[in-house]
Amino acid sequence: MLGYALRRVLSAIPIVFITIAVCFFILRLAPGGPFDGERALPPDVLRNLREYYNLDKPLPLQFVDYILGVLRGDFGPSMVMRDFSVARLISIGLPFTLMLGFAAFAIGTAAGLIAGALAAFYQNKWPDYLLVFVVLIPLVIPNFLMANLAQLVFGVYLRWLPVGGYQPGAILNLVMPVLILSMPHGARVARLTRGSMIEVLGTNYVRTARSKGLGTRLILARHAIKPALIPVVSYLGPGLSYLLTGSLVVEQVFALPGIGKYFITAALNRDYGLVLGTTILYVFIILALNLLVDIVYAWLDPKVRYR
């Protein structure tokens, strides 16, 4: 088990490296840049700028410098928000995005699991039909539209919740963003749980467990849940990526200070330093979480470890 975990960690390192390299070179080789303003800058100013942002050396050297910097936690300066380093901006935005993401992940996963299991247990009865219908709503209404509609209904018409923005401690400002972010995730988890639970409840080994007279509760808790979770857990990896990209939407619509907001602002302003830094961070977080999911998966399904 430990060896398996170690192997997985080692295999993730080149992926991070390749991603950094690809993003770095694409952005550096791209036509246009943050200094192509309305007015052309005087040559010596431009030269100073290029020197300051380490753009004057040959590209491979720039890359080596950048990698060394990243290893020290230095992502270079932001090219548009001139007084901030990328690392500083990330250190402001990351905790917020992680909090938002994990809150939505926890709520969505828990609600999805419970709802899906209930629907499977009451298959083809009214709780099942209700769930199948409710789950469709966040899946067919795109996240950004849902966020806008929620803003209108709860923020503008009903005035129950603030429309957007966030200061530390303003919990009410987080209610809508977290719920909106968790809904599509919860819906997919619920669908998957329902399907896999129905499948597991029909397997031969659950029939064996019933033939042993174990009782419904023990059969569900010991025999059905673990195998039923396997497809759900294998979804959680991609699910986390959807959540993180979903946080782009939610942070944008609700004007929240997370890295998603920084990423989009940076992209719109062609702030390549910040784009690169936030992208690397996203990729790193997603790979780390996927790794975690894989290890949980190996624990759930003993066969995986021996592959």
Binding site: Y205, T208, P227
Partner: peptide
């Protein structure tokens, strides 16, 4: 079928 009648995860 003894292959599928035992719970694979226990």
């Amino acid at each position: 079928d003894p292959m599928t009648s035992l719970n694979p995860s226990l």
